[in-house]
Simulated assay, not measured.
Amino acid sequence: MTETASPAGRLRVRPHLWLLVWRGAFGLGLLLAAILAGVVIGETPLPVATVTAVLANKLGGAGFPVDPIDAAIVWNYRIPRILVAAACGAGLALSGVVLQALIRNALADPYLLGVSAGASTGAVAVAILGVGGGTLGLSTGAFIGALLAFALVSTLARAAGGGSAQLVLAGIAGSQLFNALTSFFIAKSANAEQARGIMFWLLGNLSGVRWPDVALAGPVALAGFLACCWHIRALDGFAFGAQSAAALGIPVRRVQAVLIGATTLMTAVMVSLVGSIGFVGLVIPHAVRLAVGPRHGRLVPWSALAGAVFLIVADIASRMLIPGQVVSIGVVTALVGAPGFALILIRSRRRG
């Protein structure tokens, strides 16, 4: 005789499902609201009705009368910019979550461990020195540079003892080395105009992104998110150490290779598109962890959402802080991220 679920059991399941649906709807609504704000707010404010009409014309062929200049601003400039900002924020936040779990160090993020600096060096080497003879794109060069940087930092950390503290110190040294190489390449081979453009790009710049960049950043961020979701159980295991993960039956080497590869790819692609942006991968995971707890089943999706929204808001601020001038988005994230991280550290110490 088969057993059937009791009414009490069904009542216990339904609130849980409704909670999941509510959280998903809330997160999606928050992201869409941030995207809409990023399209509407700018040097030239646009009404929501204009944005809606442009989207209806482009996606559904509605034929609403819209000023061609407004249509070009919405479709060719602001929407790609905001979508790339969302993808970059999500990718960098996920990278921070993964590195903090694998390395078991609260300070781990692509910027601090030298991955961003290596990606910048690789991209600059392709753009300025012509490395690859025209066969390598900026993203490929950035990916190779990021891999080299992580390999160098890991080797230095192992030579110094292999602890997480040594890894952070090695990351600082690696960041300085690759930043110095980037500055040397620029000083040696770039003219004044190229040097000015590259230095502005290195601080974080979304001004030049277009739809082809969306087609690159979006799938990479989505692939990284799916890779993290697929390995959520492994990330929970790594939070207690590699030996604990192995005791749970997790193939440590393979999972480490997959997650580090995904992190490096996301960081490299985002850096090649918008430059090096700090504090997103460091601050966002900590802030989300305080809100939803350390379990990666919640931490991964909410960190991706918070990173996307944070970078969209930072991009809006970069366009509005100084009238008639765009501030580098990396400057905005540092202005917000540095004191924000200090507050998180203080709060965490008080809780401890």
Score class of each variant (00 low, 15 high):
251 P>S: 02
17 L>A: 12
31 L>G: 02
246 A>Y: 11
258 V>T: 14
267 T>G: 12
71 A>L: 01
251 P>C: 03
6 S>C: 12
80 P>V: 02
261 G>W: 01
128 I>H: 07
39 V>K: 07
180 A>L: 13
181 L>Q: 03
57 N>Q: 12
27 G>W: 01
52 T>S: 09
324 G>D: 11
195 A>P: 08
36 L>N: 07
311 L>N: 13
262 A>T: 07
19 L>Q: 10
222 L>V: 15
170 A>N: 05
49 A>V: 10
288 V>H: 09
297 G>C: 01
234 A>D: 05
185 F>R: 01
128 I>R: 05
178 F>K: 05
169 L>P: 07
222 L>E: 07
47 P>Y: 14
215 A>R: 13
264 T>L: 15
35 I>Q: 13
91 G>V: 00
333 T>G: 07
232 I>L: 13
242 A>V: 02
207 S>T: 15
88 C>Y: 01
38 G>A: 12
301 P>T: 01
111 Y>N: 01
54 V>F: 06
41 I>Y: 05
280 V>A: 00
276 S>T: 08
285 P>Y: 00
265 L>P: 08
169 L>T: 04
103 I>D: 00
25 A>P: 02
257 A>T: 13
3 E>H: 05
73 I>L: 10
101 A>P: 11
246 A>G: 11
297 G>V: 05
222 L>P: 15
125 A>I: 03
212 P>H: 06
165 A>F: 14
38 G>S: 12
174 G>H: 01
204 G>L: 08
159 A>F: 06
158 R>I: 01
66 V>E: 14
23 R>M: 09
95 S>C: 09
94 L>Q: 08
75 W>A: 04
85 A>C: 12
31 L>P: 02
310 F>E: 00
276 S>A: 14
81 R>N: 11
2 T>L: 12
241 G>F: 08
120 S>C: 03
173 A>H: 06
333 T>V: 03
113 L>C: 06
76 N>A: 14
263 T>I: 00
249 G>D: 13
123 A>M: 08
189 S>D: 14
153 V>K: 10
96 G>D: 02
142 A>H: 15
278 G>T: 03
170 A>D: 02
42 G>E: 00
350 R>V: 06
6 S>G: 12
162 G>W: 14
32 L>N: 09
139 S>Q: 12
143 F>E: 08
242 A>M: 10
100 Q>M: 04
18 W>S: 08
106 A>M: 00
335 L>W: 05
99 L>G: 12
116 S>A: 11
54 V>C: 09
290 L>A: 07
162 G>C: 06
256 Q>H: 01
347 R>D: 00
117 A>D: 04
154 S>W: 14
328 S>C: 13
206 L>G: 09
322 I>R: 10
195 A>E: 12
49 A>N: 06
295 R>N: 04
150 F>T: 13
298 R>G: 13
98 V>G: 03
323 P>V: 01
90 A>F: 13
229 C>H: 00
136 L>W: 13
348 S>W: 04
